[in-house]
Nucleic acid binder design. Sequence first.
DNA 1: CCCTGATTCGC
DNA 2: GCGAATCAGG
Length: 179
Amino acid sequence: MSDPSQTWSDERVELLRKLWSDGLSASQIAAELGGVTRNAVIGKVHRLGLSGRAKSPTPAASRPRTKVTRPPSHPMSHGNPTAVRGNVALAASAAPEAEPEVEEAPAPRENVVVPLSERVTIMELREFMCRWPMGDPTSAEFRFCGAKSVTGLPYCSYHARIAYQPATDRKRDRKAVRA
DNA sequence: CCCTGATTCGC
DNA sequence: GCGAATCAGG
């Protein structure tokens, strides 16, 4: 409310400093601020003088970086447009039941605890977190389960059971899975 | 694969 | 000054 025309208004910078010192990563800050990419955040952070937050306290003897320069005749064999990832187009209605024989379910008859209140956003998602979609993907309130996922699986033990339901067990247990 | 920050460089 | 592109490490 001062001058949105400016990318880095005082308020923006203030928030940036706050979030950065708060421990948030650049991507998270960028997403929080909106309109800026994580690179922009990092760039600004460096320009502000912040950078080594919780890093090596030895700025000396730590720069053996051999200037890579930028030869125009070396555009690398890189041609993948990886830049935008704000849109998560995943099919929540997709029924993952094409597995003929999934050798899983190490837990025979265990009352799996439904991990509620652990829902996370796309950015809170970690590699070991359950990616079970919850809610409307088009909604801003869209979240993932976020519970600890089974190693090798994108879901937690609970949702893994739902996703990879054995045909034998599937024919009977047809309860509401709506989240 | 995903992510992270760091750096360089063109605008 | 700003941020994309790039690099390098986890």
